[in-house]
Design a protein around this nucleic acid. Structure first.
Lengths: 270, 270
DNA sequence: CAGTGGTCTAGACCACTAT
DNA sequence: TAGTGGTCTAGACCACTGT
């Protein structure tokens, strides 16, 4: 009880001191030198996202500590923390208590769902492995042109991938990106980046792709698809169409995926 | 500049005062009277979620203000705020600046995806309308028993719904919930709650359902499905299987949905 | 105008990690 | 032991909503 009283007396002095401080500092430049059209933590979030996208830190490299960032940016640690939390939620960073905050590796081209045995919600098997089939040019359909904000029949790069799970072909991807938006894309260049379109766009063009909206439906395969997937009989396929976005929200990729779904289901967590 | 110096001098005193305070209060009960096996904000989050689930506040009713909650719970407003933010992220609450924090309405039984024209990522049409077809009993398959942590062939309630979009049948639902876990469920009781299983479970049994894992695949319909959906020809269907969880994480529902997907795609935002 | 959520600060202490 | 992220507090001010 005595301690509590001591504490109270100290607290009251602190309160007094703060009030005095406030009075003294009124109408000074203390607060006015911060632009406030956008919350500070969002400005910092954007700034850090840009610095990450420009490769200032490699994947799995640690950022400066929250306190160091706070000092260099002239804000408090709590504000930096809020910005970092947002970036963690968006998949740009990951944190390890006691160690630091690290840059997350680039987006897996497979996406965030995984293949499982239908009806089994427990054990996710290993992710499928991609195999580059071709990299050609194509013209945008009306849907693609609209989604990517291009003019009709605009030129596109088309990257075709075959996904294998334990050696078995399970999915076929066609990824489309605008021609003018990036440097040249071809099979040779893709090979330099491990056959990963996203790795190439991030390392070479400085554009980090994150997943946008996704659509799912059921279809029947055409002859070409059956050949590429090695189907001997017609079976219904799960067709997934999804968009890829840059940091700015700009849609930079349209991807169509056909999945064999007799033996696998596409599972996403909540 | 002078103001800065004044500020610094006050700050140094505050720092000294805090240090003194810390020394004086060391080894007192200041901190030990808080259980800390779990972060405070998580305890508060759980407590509030329970109070919401028990119907302490109706849907769209305002909670006490952050400051009022903080005082009644004996924590700071920042801690309450963090708990509320989590609950907002999980869909329990929504906030309106300047007005208050409100209880979100119960989960829509359709779920969080919506039906759109394939390839059109822009305009989501109105949500489908449910129609109760039947409410019967069934026995759990192995998959269902495993997902719901039941013994094999355990008794289940089976609620069958038909979804219509602009009058056209677009999807067929079979929802399964364990028999012993809830009070009796039948068509009459469901009608009392607007044909909504989730509304019944929330209002009557005090169990609020949130979406769990979701699987998608493509199938062909059997005769019964064709009849119920009014299909004249065989067409591939999108089959969605998803789990419903209670607040505690307990899986309380298995739901299978067959969607016509020639004219509609199932879209989810990132 | 008062009340509410939204942002920001400065500080403290804890838990975890590495040396 | 030092450094890092994780939690918590107490206070301030702002923006928005209603009366």
């Amino acid at each position: 009880m005595r301690k509590q009283e001591d504490r109270a007396s100290v607290m009251s002095y602190i309160r007094y001191a703060w009030t005095t401080l406030k009075e003294r500092c009124k109408n000074t430049s203390m607060t006015t030198d911060k632009p406030s059209f956008q919350p500070l933590y969002q400005q910092i979030r954007t700034l850090l996202a840009q610095r990450i996208a420009q490769g200032e830190w490699a994947a799995h490299e640690a950022l400066p500590s929250e306190w160091a960032l706070a000092e260099s940016l002239g804000v408090s640690q709590g504000t930096v923390r809020k910005a970092l939390t947002d970036l963690v939620d968006e998949g740009w960073l990951y944190r390890q208590q006691g160690k630091g905050t690290f840059v997350a590796p680039g987006l897996n081209e497979w996406g965030d769902g995984h293949l499982v045995t239908p009806g089994q919600f427990a054990e996710p098997p290993g992710s499928p492995v991609p195999e580059l089939l071709s990299c050609t040019r194509a013209n945008a359909s009306e849907d693609i042109a609209q989604a990517l904000s291009l003019r009709r029949a605009a030129p596109l790069f088309r990257v075709r991938l075959l996904w294998r799970l334990a050696g078995v072909a399970v999915a076929l991807d066609d990824a489309y990106v605008p021609v003018g938006r990036f440097e040249e894309i071809d099979a040779r260049r893709l090979r330099q980046y491990g056959n990963s379109l996203y790795t190439l766009l991030e390392r070479r063009d400085g554009v980090r792709v994150r997943l946008g909206a996704i659509q799912a439906r059921a279809t029947l395969p055409d002859r070409e698809t059956m050949t590429l997937l090695g189907l001997s009989d017609v079976e219904p396929l799960l067709m997934i169409t999804r968009l890829g976005q840059a940091l700015t929200g700009e849609v930079v990729e349209w991807r169509e995926r056909l999945c064999r779904s007799a033996r696998w289901a596409f599972q996403r967590e909540p």
